[in-house]
Amino acid sequence: MLRMKNVYKSYNGDGYALENINLHISPGEFVFLVGASGAGKSTFIKLIFREISADSGEIFVNGVAKSISDLSAKEVPSLRRLLGIVFQDYRLLPDRTVFENVAFAMRVTEAPKDIISHRVRHVLDLVGLSHKSDSFPNELSGGEQQRVAIARAVVNDPKLIIADEPTGNLDPETAWDIMEIFRQINEHGATVIMATHDENIVNNLNKRVITIENGHIVRDRNRGFYGE
């Protein structure tokens, strides 16, 4: 699903944010990316959806023929349609309803209207927000907003979901609700890569854990725990 080979990334030339990263993630895996603040987790996530480009090395995503770094600006949209991206700060459009926020991701693919509305209702059901379909983001709690963002990420049925600290702004209980949704999505076959600080979540889910320190992968455990 995802393969990185000798990937280097520096921001201003002064040292690497990621240095010689090599890894392979198979379809259907659930992977936590952990590490201290500034370790390079967000950099890793951003490389996958080509928010930034690697200095050298290769990054392959299933379904894309070229290395992500070799994609031209014109090819980036089709990469992003293969991915579902979830951020810590939800990134919803404040002036659109829940339904519109989710439908948005399908409109850009120029999907037909009836398919869009059918599919949007389905994913809102999946995240348990059917009844809030006409609400605006500022009428929702943080957890509900994050569920809308997840619905938006999965509406195009991507095979790879990447999330950068999706529970970072939520209280522990709400965080667990969100994790439960990710777990379900993963069980339906999508690969999930999630950067997180949440020790509790990592230790309880018993999934693959990749630990980054100072831009290096220092541990990669299949049924891992936070910090060991």
């Binding site: 014109k74 949209p77 992003r80 990134r91 459009l93 850009v108 693919t109 195009n156």
Partner: peptide, 16 residues
Amino acid sequence: RREIEIMRYVGATDSF
């Protein structure tokens, strides 16, 4: 700009 940014995250082409 925020709206445009989000459109790009979900894979909107420039012409869209």
